[in-house]
Design a protein around this nucleic acid. Sequence first.
DNA 1: CCGGAGTATGAACGCTTGTTCATTTACGCG
DNA 2: CGCGTAAATGAACAAGCGTTCATACTCCGG
Lengths: 202, 202
Amino acid sequence: MNVRSPNATRERIHDAGLTLFNERGYTGTTVRELADAVDLTPGAIYNHYPSKEALLFAIVDRVHDEADSVLSETLRGVGNDPVAQLQALAAAFTAFHIARPRETRVANRDYIYLPPGERESVVRRRRRVRALFADVLRDGERRGHFSFGELGSADAVQAASMAILNMVVLVAEWFDPAGPRSADDTAALHGRLALRIARGGR
Amino acid sequence: MNVRSPNATRERIHDAGLTLFNERGYTGTTVRELADAVDLTPGAIYNHYPSKEALLFAIVDRVHDEADSVLSETLRGVGNDPVAQLQALAAAFTAFHIARPRETRVANRDYIYLPPGERESVVRRRRRVRALFADVLRDGERRGHFSFGELGSADAVQAASMAILNMVVLVAEWFDPAGPRSADDTAALHGRLALRIARGGR
DNA sequence: CCGGAGTATGAACGCTTGTTCATTTACGCG
DNA sequence: CGCGTAAATGAACAAGCGTTCATACTCCGG
């Protein structure tokens, strides 16, 4: 009956899960809705995923893999100048979040529904991303490119890196693909805004 | 049986809903869990709220009321200098989010589960908050205190105001009340970071 | 042309969901 | 003291949940 390439159905389920989890949330989505979306019977889903939870983990895990490679490839493509690094990271990660709004929203919002073990592994990955940005800021401060001391608060690096990260991670919440500004423009803009946050001014 | 003041039970349910919705999400929380949390029977909940959904709306609506008054009172307490306005708004709103992590997280994450009419009203309120920050930025730019033109992107005000707002709204995601930095410190820090974002640097 | 592997079906499973309701309990007030 | 009202009970409801399974279909290699 099925002439598709292997795993094509698995992929279609993955994609439908992305759409539905994004719109209704994980607990707000039904296996039957999922089956309807791919024109399948609820039982057939279980030929491809052992459980609804496994689908969520597949979704969350994959987008974290992709995020990790975006960040590490960006870092590889730029020198070791913290200014260039920060700008490139913020821009690339912004572009990533614009390109994958469903994936990133589900990952950021619904990972809490994973069982403890898998949730912990996700928390660890996301901590590593935070640490990456914080390290770049600290490195840049030490080398005189960024300044946080004048902010008058101990360890302003944490707050500043979270400000940058949150700006980037939530871009899809307001960015309109049909709007006047292109994704590339917005990515570049976020790169410069990240520098404003880190470098300080006036 | 109940010697409490009127509406005390209603308030306890409100609070338990806050805790549970925050931890497990709205759809992930059960009326029975809710009842357990306030030492009541599921049926008794319905003496105080007509539905689970009504409880969610009460929660979301109240925190929006509070947010609105925090913002308008902050604005009233400061002059009409855009720099002072932005700094005060960012600081006050940060303090608000640190003080009410459950409320703001539920409001920001679970309002999508409200029925269309109520969801629309929430969306409208939240758009008004975005507009408030954007207006302050535009006003400040016009009067020469902020600059976005050098960012090289049309209407950078939108991106900048969203960067500020997301920094503020997500502070509870990383701020640790048991950590070394106080809430007031963090609020003030965010006030200054908002100026960095708006004013630009170097 | 046959057989086996992979996939889909559709009915069913036990359980949980939000909600209802007749009944009982408790309390404040006259 | 006793009445009326508000609140809590506990059992029940229908509907929906994630998941299972015996069965049937379809395709491809030998």
